[in-house]
Design a binder for these strands. Structure first.
Length: 199
DNA sequence: TAGAGGATTGAT
DNA sequence: TCAATCCTCTAC
């Protein structure tokens, strides 16, 4: 088991840099006595000057209010009435930046994940933001939780391994409504990793 | 207070 | 290709 990423990691001003740095780190949840974890292989960054963000133009609503807190906490919301999506809030409180986690490579609690996903094989159980949230037991109860706590956190993986990661950036998924912002290359993923979500 | 639509998934 | 499904936001 590695060390939890320190709060300073999340307080940096460049959300794109943090989104890239999250690749290769390990997202862990502990729900009851069930620990589940996976290596982060796909992320997307959102900023307040970006129409695709819930906090576009720094507009604060009940749903996105945790994005306006200091970085290092979880932002969970329901999408399409069906799926929970898990984000990491970054930057200082004045800047509502967030990073959506879109893909994980399972490393612990795989049996639990398969049960939660109602699958008999691990294939693709954590590929896609809604899917990985279900596999890790993430729901609205985790919204606003500190990533220094003991329910959900991100562990630093071996830096030597991180250096080997071949990162690709591309446009984000499912935000065609965002006009020119839809073409920003703010999605980051690990080249050739089988656990990234479908394009 | 009502209506529209969404940072998706999985079955057809 | 399209339905499921419900919460949030916006406009009236």
């Amino acid at each position: 088991m590695g060390q939890k990423l320190q709060k300073e990691f999340y307080l940096r001003a460049n959300v794109l840099e943090i989104a890239r740095d999250l690749l290769g780190q390990i997202l862990v949840t502990k729900i009851g006595n069930n620990i589940t974890a996976g290596i982060i292989v796909e992320t997307e960054a959102y900023r307040p000057d970006d129409r695709a963000s819930h906090a576009y133009l720094r507009k604060k609503t009940k749903r996105n209010s945790v994005m306006f807190c200091e970085g290092g906490i979880a932002y969970v919301f329901m999408n399409y009435g069906i799926h929970y999506l898990f984000n990491v809030v970054t930057n200082l409180g004045e800047e509502p930046d967030a990073i959506l986690i879109r893909g994980l490579e399972p490393v612990a609690g795989i049996e639990t994940m398969m049960e939660r996903r109602n699958k008999s094989a691990p294939a693709r159980i954590t590929s896609g933001p809604g899917a990985l949230s279900q596999a890790l037991g993430i729901d609205l109860k985790l919204n606003g939780k500190s990533l220094q706590g003991n329910e959900v956190w991100i562990e630093e993986s071996n830096p030597l391994n991180s250096n080997k990661i071949d990162v690709i950036s591309s446009t984000r998924i499912g935000i065609d409504y965002a006009g020119k912002h839809a073409s920003l290359p703010w999605r980051f993923y690990v080249r050739n990793n089988p656990w990234i979500s479908k394009t």
